[in-house]
């Protein structure tokens, strides 16, 4: 199912010693300080941390939207720019960012209509089938303005899956939704991903969300943004809603919260 033919054997994401600072020379703020991280093929990695820890900046560097001051990022063994040229990166931004003048179906078709050169030789998905599997089959001909926030965000995720990218970058995709809706979307994504394994970098500020979805959780500290620790989530897959209630889940939650707490304490000390 996952057409990953064009990925080098050392596929996935490799972030090595990436640093980034912003601002004028006399008031420079270091947002990322020597961050290294790998995401293997088919691995789901969440990045969590207090605001200002640079998690969104890290995602933008991996997406090739921001250039790092130093360090390297490779995707499937290629530099980010080359990976973008091959359409190897699927981005799900914080807001759905659907085009309001296109139907949901035409929004999902958009990635197939640009940079067509990179369409050759890959397992492109059928947009309407994909939308159906995201539970949006009945809404395909509607316009984004007619959809609820959760449905819009699902369409945005479908838009990122449709061209079969090697890696998915998701920047707090559910943060704008209300809690009940958020949980529903999260489980929907889990379901879909478990049968369509891709390397995912998932930025979030929700501990249960990170645990439920991830293989590994990267905890970042702020000012400057550094990786504080990496926590393995060894809950068996496939996971489902019932896992929230297990002891293993609660134990992990305590561990992650403890790490976050430590990171925040250190920042205030």
């Amino acid at each position: 199912m996952t057409g990953t033919a064009f990925i080098a054997p050392d596929g996935g994401v490799r972030v090595e010693h990436v640093s980034k600072s912003f601002g004028p020379p006399d008031a420079r703020v270091t947002v990322l300080d020597d961050v290294s991280l790998t995401i293997g093929m088919g691995e789901f990695v969440s990045v969590i941390g207090p605001s200002g820890c640079g998690k969104s900046t890290l995602l933008k560097v991996v997406a090739g939207l921001i250039e790092a001051d130093s360090g390297t990022v490779t995707i499937g063994g290629e530099p980010v720019a080359a990976a973008a040229r091959d359409k190897a990166i699927g981005l799900v931004p914080q807001a759905p960012a659907l085009l309001p003048w296109r139907t949901v179906l035409d929004n999902v078709r958009l990635p197939l209509q640009v940079n067509r050169r990179a369409n050759a030789g890959r397992a492109l998905r059928d947009p309407s089938e994909l939308l159906t599997s995201f539970g949006l089959g009945h809404a395909m001909r509607k316009y984004p303005g007619q959809l609820s926030g959760g449905m819009q965000q699902r369409a945005a995720i479908a838009r990122a899956f449709v061209f079969d990218p090697a890696i998915m970058l998701m920047d707090e995709p559910f943060s704008a939704l209300d809690e009940m809706n958020r949980d529903q979307q999260r489980l929907g994504l889990l379901d879909f991903w478990q049968s369509n394994r891709k390397a995912v970098m998932f930025v979030t500020h929700s501990v249960p969300e990170a645990i439920m979805l991830s293989d590994r959780i990267v905890v970042m500290s702020a000012h400057p943004g550094r990786i504080a620790t990496v926590i393995d989530v060894d809950l068996p897959r496939p996971r489902a809603e019932a896992d929230y209630a297990t002891d293993a889940f609660r134990d992990l939650e305590a561990v992650v919260r403890g790490e976050l707490h430590r990171v925040m304490e250190a920042a205030h000390a």
Partner: peptide, 27 residues
Amino acid sequence: ADPKALDVLRTLHASRWEIFRDLRFPG
């Protein structure tokens, strides 16, 4: 133009013309 939609198109390596055609012009 919606900066988030612009981000999506940039990661797809859409050309300037494609960004104009699909985002800036209708937007």
